[in-house]
Design a protein around this nucleic acid. Structure first.
Length: 583
DNA sequence: TGTCTAAAGACACTTGTGGATGCCCACAA
């Protein structure tokens, strides 16, 4: 059981207490425990139970509940609360936009006990008639239900990858072959995965079937299966699994056919002569290959890596040998946009810096939350000053490693930044992000963001849409206008590498590059473990053909320092920005 | 629930915002 699981349990208990209208202070206490656990920089499960309160700073009874969770998977109060709540009502807690109080009312007054019943009632216009609800809330509920149902049966890339790796290992063992490969969406590194596709070379597919049928957590769908194909779903997430059994000789051809999307495989080949195969699929149907490179070579194309096989113009570029050398993990020289325990991170500045230094990176950009983000312990100007002093000291000690003074500055509702210019000018760089008022329409959201981009102190745009994949839709934006403005004002755009975000969406990367906008792979790490997410950002960049020379944090520490210094030197504060005319 | 000051009982809520509804609920990390 990870800290995440513990946090989830305490949050659930708090929500259930609220649902049952219990003591508000008790609710607070449970939320407090969840928050306290969130701040820890070690896994509670690894610790000696008797030392829990001392090491975690939790109260005795909270620590006892944590111990109970670790031992039994639940605690008394949580078990009691779950027992008196219909499972469907617990499910309602996952719907964005309605909280425990509204759910209590839906349950007690309208007898709604599941998302399905809620949908029916909303569709029949019954919800809008309840006290405290109206037409808008009803529409919001329907939209949230729709989003939740669309997210069903899908996994984030890392979750799907872990599952696929496990399946791959099991199949390798069962079939006694190394030739088991991941194909499909996962091999193309899509941000969310609906079907996990594997290809296995074997002359005994029945053994593969037996192995898969015997796996716990996997349910076969016999109607969809054949001798050479096993299909089913994972019981926990509902994500589909598809395993294709092929002969050794057909392995490469099948892997190829099961990797590229339909558009990639059926796009007319730029060089096709009459009588020759007209598409990549036809090429592979006609001839047997042992290397994917040979397939492209056969038709005079540059090799196309799997993550580019989306049918978005890559074949035309391949024809002209114009697919660039794509960004790789090892190109990154530093990590910008990370948090420390000054705001809501788990590690100290020193820990965040030393981790990067010890892993051969040259610099850290620290971007704690700005003052408006109270919920995340955002920094007041005074605390900004203290943090910057600490950074100065650390920089002396850790040189040539360098910590850049940054901030994740909230973009307020009207597009203004969250500090006065004199505070903003104290940073080396400023990442601007939206964290509040996420339900704007496209016009308003775009105007708000444009105003932030035009602000001379804005160095970089953070997670542009605010989306949380499978959990929350981002606000709509006119991306073209946003990217054009970034080009005009020299603003870098982040690819937030947190697997929940992956925002800027990779589908806009090429447009940004074409406008000359540089991108930065930012993990938004709140913990040293979070740095590992940079890998997902690199994958998204690659899907958009991001090159090392257009990646801001592929620059060396000297280049980054020079860039920040020059940009700052060019800021001419407008008259009204000055604190006093007599300065 | 948990902590504090005083020995059982008082007192404490990240916070600010927006939006929908009829005065409060949900959300941001």
């Amino acid at each position: 059981m990870t800290n995440r699981d513990l946090i989830r349990a305490f949050k659930l208990a708090a929500q259930l207490l609220e649902l049952h209208d219990e003591n508000p202070f008790k609710i607070r206490a449970y939320e407090g425990t969840a928050n306290a656990l969130d701040q820890l920089n070690f896994q509670v499960a690894d610790m000696d139970r008797t030392g829990l309160p001392d090491r975690t700073g939790l109260s005795k009874s909270a620590a006892a509940r944590v111990a109970e969770l670790l031992d039994t998977g639940s605690f008394d109060e949580l078990t009691r609360l779950l027992a008196i709540t219909p499972p469907g009502v617990v499910e309602l807690l996952n719907i964005k936009g309605i909280g425990p109080k509204k759910i209590r009312q839906l349950w007690r007054e309208a007898g709604i006990e599941s998302p399905e019943q809620l949908r029916e009632a909303a569709e029949q216009d019954q919800i809008s008639k309840l006290k405290g609800f109206g037409k808008k809330t009803q529409d919001l509920i329907l939209a949230a239900l729709e989003f939740t149902s669309q997210s069903k049966g899908k996994l984030l890339f890392p979750q799907a990858e872990a599952l696929a790796t496990d399946l791959q290992a099991r199949l390798r063992e069962a079939l006694r072959t190394e030739q088991v490969a991941v194909a499909g969406e996962l091999r193309r590194c899509l941000e969310t995965i609906e079907t996990i596709v594997l290809v296995a070379a074997t002359s005994t597919p029945d053994r593969g079937h037996d192995a898969l049928d015997a796996l716990e957590g996997l349910a076969a769908e016999p109607a969809q299966c054949g001798v050479y194909c096993w299909r089913g779903t994972t019981t926990e997430s509902g994500v589909k699994v598809e395993v294709h059994f092929v002969t050794k000789e057909n392995f490469t051809n099948q892997l190829f056919l099961l990797t590229g999307n339909e558009a990639h495989l059926t796009e007319a080949l730029p060089s096709a002569m009459p009588g020759q195969p007209a598409t990549l699929r036809q090429v592979v149907k006609k001839e047997r290959f042992y290397q994917e490179e040979a397939i492209y070579e056969k038709v005079g194309l540059q090799y196309v890596v799997p993550e580019l096989r989306e049918g978005r113009g890559e074949l035309t570029l391949a024809k002209e040998q114009k697919i660039p050398r794509l960004l790789e993990d090892t190109d990154l020289r530093g990590s910008l946009h990370n948090h420390s325990n000054h705001s809501d991170g788990a590690h100290t500045l020193r820990q965040m810096a030393e981790w990067l230094r010890d892993h051969q990176y040259q610099y850290l950009g620290i971007c704690d939350h700005s003052q408006a983000a109270h919920y995340a312990n955002g920094l007041s100007p005074e605390r900004v000053r203290q943090q910057q002093q600490e950074i100065d000291q650390l920089n002396q000690e850790l040189a040539p490693f360098r910590i850049f003074k940054g901030i994740e500055c909230d973009i307020l509702s009207d597009g203004a930044l969250d500090y006065t210019p004199d505070v903003l000018s104290s940073f080396d760089f400023v990442v601007t992000s939206v964290h509040s008022n996420l339900r704007m329409d496209e016009r308003k959201a775009t105007e708000r963001m444009l105003r932030a981009i035009e602000n001379p102190y804005c160095t970089m745009l953070g997670h542009p849409t605010g989306r949380l994949l499978l959990r929350r839709e981002g606000y709509p934006l006119d991306f073209k206008a946003i990217i054009d403005a970034c080009a005009k004002h020299g603003v870098i755009i982040e690819i937030n590498a947190n697997p929940w975000r992956l925002d800027l969406d990779w589908r806009w990367v090429r447009y940004a590059l074409d406008q000359g906008v540089r991108l930065s792979i930012n993990p938004d790490a709140h913990h040293t473990d979070g740095y590992a997410d940079m890998r997902y950002g690199v994958l998204m960049g690659r899907k958009g053909m991001l090159t090392p020379d257009m990646t801001f944090n592929a620059l060396s520490v000297e280049e980054v320092a020079a860039y920040f210094a020059e940009r700052k030197a060019n800021i001419k504060p407008p008259l009204e920005y000055k604190k006093s005319l007599f300065e």
